[in-house]
């Protein structure tokens, strides 16, 4: 697999798992209602099926992340993993009907811009294709 393909699939999967975790947490707690420091509330959260979505998301992220780190430098990879912020903001607007401030929209655009810069750096330094003997 080429490095480019490895990164696109890897970061794509990471983004999906991270987003699944956040959305599942939101759905699990929405179902439980406003937080109260009672066992009933915790019970509602832990026995809500959505909490298992969050667990699957965490396990998936861990496996994907440890696979990515085999080749990816940790600094830029950690920075790029913040693409999750953009997808979670998008879902919060489209699905949960939340409103974003202009600053949040600008922030999301800057994150996307930053990831484009990181991928340009990778493209510039990509090793030349191996000659086959």
């Amino acid at each position: 697999m080429s490095t480019k393909r490895f990164y696109i699939i890897g970061f794509g999967a990471l983004m999906l798992f991270d987003t699944l975790t956040q959305v599942s947490f939101k759905l699990a707690t929405t179902h439980a209602g406003e937080f109260t420091p009672t066992t009933t509330w915790l019970w509602e959260v832990f026995f809500n099926p959505w909490i298992y979505g969050a667990v699957i998301g965490y396990i998936g992220s861990f496996i994907t992340w440890m696979t990515l780190l085999k080749h990816a430098p940790v600094g830029p990879a950690f920075a790029a993993s913040h693409l999750e912020v953009v997808t979670v903001l998008a879902i919060s607007v489209l699905y949960f009907g939340e409103h974003l401030s202009a600053m949040q929209v600008l922030g999301a655009l800057l994150i996307v811009g930053g990831i484009i810069c990181l991928s340009k750096s990778e493209a510039e330094h990509e090793p030349p294709p191996q000659e086959t003997a």
């Binding site: 430098p73 940790v74 600094g75 830029p76 920075a79 790029a80 913040h82 912020v85 953009v86 903001l89 600053m103 949040q104 600008l106 922030g107 999301a108 655009l109 800057l110 994150i111 996307v112 811009g113 930053g114 990831i115 484009i116 810069c117 990181l118 340009k120 750096s121 510039e124 330094h125």
Partner: peptide, 22 residues
Amino acid sequence: ERLDKMRVAGMWLITIGVALAG
């Protein structure tokens, strides 16, 4: 790890982006 201009630019854009978004 390499820290070239594009990576530094990406790093700052993402940092500021996360700060604004959050």
